[in-house]
Amino acid sequence: MSATQSEYLRPKDLRAALEHKAATPDARFIAGGTDLLVHARRPGATLPQSLISLRAVAELNEVTVVGATLRIGAAAPLTEVARHPVIAERLPALVASIDVLGSRQIRNVATLGGNLCNASPAADTAPPLLVHDARVELQHVGGRREVPLVEFFRGPGETAIEANEVMTAVLLELPPPNAEAAFERKGRVRMDLAIAIVAGLFELDGSVVRRARVAAGAVAPLPLRLTEVEERLTGSELDDDVIAEARRLTTEAISPISDLRSSADYRRHLTGVFVERMLHGVAGSSVTGRPGA
């Protein structure tokens, strides 16, 4: 990495940040820097000419609740996101996903927006946000738009974000109090990129599933919503046959690869196990937000 010629800007408000970006198209936004700086140190890589820090932009660092809508500033450090009282109480799967992301030191600086914009298929926070139907807010000098998270991811490292845009917030509607959320995840060791992630959100009417949302990570080029699984579960009782079929549909819906961390077969197997466990948990007592390993 050559760090000699990089410019580092630290605007205090969003407008200044967006104007810098408009004036310097090659500039990169930086929040926690835990991905960007690691990539820049790779052999042959360089640091961008100009870096625009979002850490001093107050509105990007806030978590607010208006009615049932939660707005998480894209540059809010993960530790603070997980500690927010509403998130801590109402979004156990998101909290569980943050608790296993990197190390404590990483979580103190890494941000929710950064985890999504990096667009790793293994982004820990993506599956729980997907099951909450999260949207992301993107802004540029001329305006703002909202994109459903499920449409935001385009491929490994690729997103719907345009060259002049910055992610300003993650938005979601708080789930009803009776909804059950679940999160399962595994790396080779605990401080590792995930080799498989599963998140779920379920609303039950007695023993019948009224609404099911299931998402998986690290097992396809994108974090995925498993709609076939959701459709099979909706309106069903969670008996062993349904759970077994959900597991089968899961392993069919994903397209894992083999790499240094895991074989595709093991990823597929593990994702199936996670879905099965999650559903047994929901079918049994209400197990909410079981932290994964």
Partner: peptide, 16 residues
Amino acid sequence: ILNPNFTDYKLPTACE
């Protein structure tokens, strides 16, 4: 050598 770094070569940490 395919995993010449601590992202890809895993040591146990205090967590383990």
